[in-house]
C-alpha cells in the first residue's frame, strides 16, 4: 500500500491533464446549469455605476486584449456593450492593442444583429481605429481627442458625428472602462483617471485581479470585472446569460478537481508520514 501511495504522489502529470480535459469537456457537451448567486462586489459596483449614469452619457470602452485572453475578456466586453447600449448611453469603442481589432470587428458585427439592433452607428456608438503609443494617446484623450481620433475606423470624420456631440475629451465623458490582459489598466489609472479626475473601471484576467485591490480601495477604480466569473456575474446582472455563464460549469469542475488533488496529495503525505 505504501508503494501505491508513493506512486500516486508521483503520478504522471499527463493523467492529471486527462482528468482535467474530461472535466472541462463534459459540461460543455452537457451543461450543469449551476446557479451563479454570489456576485462579486466590484462587479456589482461597475454595474451600479453604469446604471446611475444619465441617459446619453458617453462611455469610453477601451478594448485592449488580444486573442489569447478572448475567452475571459471578450464576454466581459460584450456584456458591457450590451448594458451600455440598452441603457441608452453613447458608446465609444477604442483600442490601443493591435491584436484586439479582430474582436472589435466581432462586436461591431453583432451590435446590429442581436446586441442592440435599434442602435445606429454614428448616432449611438462609434468605433475608433487602433492607435499605437498608449501614453501619448492617453495624454491627448484628456485634452482634445480629435487630435488623434479625427476619423473613425472606416475613415469617417468623428467631430461632427451625433454620438460625439459635446465630447471633446475625457472630461466630457461619463465613464471609462479598460478591458485588458496586460498592464494597460495601470496606465489608464495613472495617465487618465488620476490626471484628469476621470472615473475609470476595469476588466481584467482572473490572475491579475488581486493586484488591483489598492486601486479599488483608494477609489481610483470605480469597479473591476475579473475573469470569466466576473463576466458571468455581469451577465447575471444584465439578465443576459452568454459565454461567460456557460464557461462557469467547466470552471467549477476544474476548481473542484484542483481541490481534490491538493487534499488527496496532503492526505497521502500524512498517511505516509505516520504509516
Amino acid at each position: 500500500m505504501k508503494n501505491a501511495l508513493e506512486k500516486f504522489l508521483k503520478i504522471d502529470r499527463r493523467l492529471i491533464f486527462l482528468a482535467l480535459t474530461v472535466l472541462l469537456f463534459a459540461p460543455i457537451v452537457r451543461p450543469l446549469g449551476l446557479p451563479n448567486k454570489n456576485l462579486g462586489k466590484d462587479v456589482v459596483n461597475t454595474y451600479n455605476y453604469i446604471e446611475a449614469l444619465p441617459e446619453r452619457s458617453f462611455v469610453m470602452l477601451s478594448l485592449d486584449y488580444d486573442p489569447a485572453t478572448r475567452p475571459e475578456l471578450h464576454p466581459q466586453a460584450v456584456a458591457l456593450v450590451k448594458h451600455a447600449l440598452r441603457r441608452n448611453l453613447r458608446v465609444g469603442i477604442f483600442t490601443l492593442n493591435a491584436g484586439a481589432t479582430g474582436m472589435i470587428e466581432d462586436i461591431a458585427a453583432r451590435i446590429p444583429k442581436d446586441i442592440a439592433p435599434d442602435k445606429v452607428y454614428g448616432r449611438d456608438y462609434v468605433i475608433m481605429p487602433f492607435q499605437p503609443n498608449p501614453v501619448a494617446v492617453m495624454t491627448q484623450l484628456g485634452i482634445n481627442l480629435y487630435e488623434i481620433y479625427d476619423k473613425d475606423r472606416n475613415g469617417n470624420p468623428t467631430k461632427d458625428m451625433e454620438v460625439m456631440k459635446g465630447v471633446k475629451s475625457v472630461k466630457d465623458m461619463g465613464l471609462g472602462i479598460c478591458i485588458t490582459g496586460t498592464a494597460m489598466l495601470d496606465y489608464y489609472v495613472a495617465y487618465v483617471a488620476d490626471k484628469y479626475k476621470f472615473p475609470m473601471a476595469g476588466g481584467v484576467t482572473a490572475v491579475s485581479q488581486p493586484g488591483y485591490g489598492p486601486y479599488l480601495q483608494t477609489g481610483q477604480l470605480k469597479g473591476l470585472i475579473g475573469g470569466m466569473k466576473g463576466a458571468a456575474d455581469y451577465e447575471t446582472l444584465i439578465n443576459d446569460l452568454e459565454k461567460g455563464t456557460s464557461g462557469i460549469d467547466a470552471l467549477s469542475l476544474a476548481h473542484v478537481l484542483v481541490i481534490v488533488l491538493i487534499l488527496t496529495s496532503n492526505i497521502i503525505m500524512l498517511v505516509l508520514k505516520y504509516l
Partner: peptide
C-alpha cells in the same frame, strides 16, 4: 476654471 474644452489649449 478649465477652458481647454471650450477654447483649446
Amino acid at each position: 476654471a478649465d477652458t481647454s474644452s471650450a477654447f483649446g489649449r
